[in-house]
Design a protein around this nucleic acid. Structure first.
Lengths: 204, 204
DNA sequence: CGTATGCTCAAACGATCGTTTGAATGACAA
DNA sequence: TTGTCATTCAAACGATCGTTTGAGCATACG
């Protein structure tokens, strides 16, 4: 183990930044290890291969994100009456809090890229490890929107997901005005996304 | 010139398919020329470089797509009263008709990937060549939604764009039932996207 | 016929890729 | 001190990348 920051964490941090900027295949291990200030062989020593490193980059963030989402959903569900707004907040708020972390915003871009790249191995990894989260939220949406047919509901969830992924990937994130605190801005953004999602899911 | 299909078009066709499946950097010129049934050197002979080939893949589809969008917008604008639905139809319908073409659906995936890859050269290319289209539509949206502030409008347009890009990239396109004709299904899909976009843009 | 011209082809170029190797290093236990 | 073990390092591995080359081939024109 190292004193300041371990080699492993330095690699993970640099990987997140560079992958977000240039994609997985766009970053060589030489560029990556050079940016992290570690030896070239360190990636294969600590992670086994570049692919396993990519997997770890996802795991580090998604484990925490989805645990928070499920916890928030459980809290909402325990209440006597559950509103669509609250369920959507349970889904959206943890993601925005993550993107507020240092490096977290970059990770959302990594995630958006991963969605756009129809890589089957990655899709399977996401489905195997985090598919149950989406299923729980979908079930709750179905309960709250009984007037929608199954295919109609899936359509709308898919479109909302696309909008949120797009927005949170930093592609269109609106700049925070100087006279608004960061917390207040994040709360505004959250409300914005939730209202959009409510409109998209429940429009007549 | 060749009798059946020119080498140039064979390369463009194969490039569209492979780029959609595996991205620009994920496809080597050897795989590409092999799939197209042409010699390895043909790409550099006919296009100059791989980057110029990528540019031509975009140009071939986007020139037609945006011309149709602008024509449809002009038609809508000439009418005595312009509705939000009609403007959105002018934007969405040409894209869905393109994705109905052979290879067109794949191209939408190429486009979605290109958006996710925050490649500055590509972004500049798109902005320089097709930015005026988005500006015309935005101006029309602003006229039809005067109650929205500028930043509010941009927010919503951005979210709608994300949803449409996501949907039309084939990520979530719902399968056509066997008892529905392809034309009817496309019309249903169009109506679906338009209604979602109307709700997302004009919700209170 | 001779010879341009447009195109295709196999082969090779140098560069860079992910990965592996084996020695050097340093911390800690016996 | 000596030996052990985890880690780091420079160097090299074979493979593959985009690109270039120069010969070969066909068609068209004087």
């Amino acid at each position: 183990m190292n004193a300041s920051v371990s080699t492993k964490d330095r690699i993970l941090g640099a990987a997140e930044v560079l992958f977000a900027q240039r994609g997985f295949e766009g970053v060589s291990l030489r560029q990556l290890t050079s940016a992290a200030g570690v030896n070239l062989a360190a990636v294969n020593y600590h992670f086994g291969s570049k692919d396993r490193l990519v997997e770890q980059v996802f795991r580090r963030r998604l484990d925490a994100l989805n645990a928070q989402r499920l916890a928030a959903l459980a809290t909402v569900r325990d209440k006597p009456e559950t509103s669509l707004e609250n369920v959507l907040a349970a889904y959206i708020r943890p993601a925005l809090e993550l993107s507020h972390d240092e490096g977290g915003a970059l990770f959302m871009r990594v995630l958006a890229r991963a969605f756009a790249e129809h890589d089957d191995r990655l899709r399977q990894f996401l489905s195997e490890n985090y598919g149950h989260v989406m299923r729980q939220f979908t079930a709750e949406f179905a309960r709250l929107l009984p007037q929608l047919g199954k295919s109609e509901l899936y359509w709308r969830i898919d479109l909302v997901t696309g909008a949120l992924t797009h927005a949170m990937s930093g592609f269109g994130m609106i700049q925070r005005p100087k006279d608004v605190s960061e917390d207040a801005h994040r709360e505004q953004t959250t409300q914005h996304l939730i209202r959009f999602a409510v409109a998209g899911l429940s429009h007549p």
